[in-house]
């Protein structure tokens, strides 16, 4: 399986390549007044209005650095209820791919609730790499905000 790796607040993460629609450079975003800090704004992606989630803000409490390698990862999010929708994840150092087996990632066996939310860990080099799932990452009020706002009738 191919993973795209990136970095948030000094820690490495991975996202399954098949889940990714496209990686685009960070473009001008339209800020959303009154939204939580993790919502960096709205992106015009090929005519579609796509909400951008700042992973640095969400996972590290800091805004992403404005580097060339800070890019937007466009992914289709499938919530537990409602229809699929595209969201953009903003992360640093979105430059590498790794090919790993699914079994390479395992439960850390510690703080089960947290792992559930942030995904499985794998030892990689001198540190760790954590595999994330957008749906679990965005669970809670953020998910209802992102999905429910656009599809109130669903």
């Amino acid at each position: 399986m191919l993973f795209i790796t990136f970095q948030v607040a000094g820690n490495r993460y991975a996202l399954e390549a098949r889940r990714i629609i496209e990686i685009v450079p960070r473009a001008a975003l339209r800020p959303v007044v009154g939204a939580p800090g993790a919502i960096a704004g709205l992106l015009n992606y090929r005519g579609q209005c796509v909400p951008v989630v700042d992973l640095c803000q969400l996972l590290g409490g800091e805004t992403c650095n404005r580097l060339l390698s800070s890019r937007l990862i466009l992914t289709a999010c499938r919530p537990r209820s409602g229809c699929e929708r595209i969201i953009a994840l903003l992360a640093e150092r979105v430059t590498e791919t790794i090919a790993r087996d699914e079994a390479h990632f395992a439960q850390a066996g510690l703080l089960a609730g947290t792992a559930q939310r942030h995904g499985l860990l794998a030892a990689e080099g001198a540190g760790f790499i954590q595999r994330i799932q957008p749906e679990t990452l965005l669970a809670g009020e953020l998910e209802s905000l992102l999905v429910g706002a656009t599809e109130p009738g669903a």
């Binding site: 191919l2 390549a17 098949r18 990686i23 685009v24 060339l68 390698s69 890019r71 430059t95 791919t97």
Partner: peptide, 21 residues
């Protein structure tokens, strides 16, 4: 040159994703 390299990196990333798909 750096910008070009960055673009190239981005392009190859997307290409890898498409190839995986």
């Amino acid at each position: 040159i750096t910008k070009v390299a960055d673009q190239t990196n981005l392009l190859s990333l997307n290409a890898s994703i498409e190839a995986e798909k």
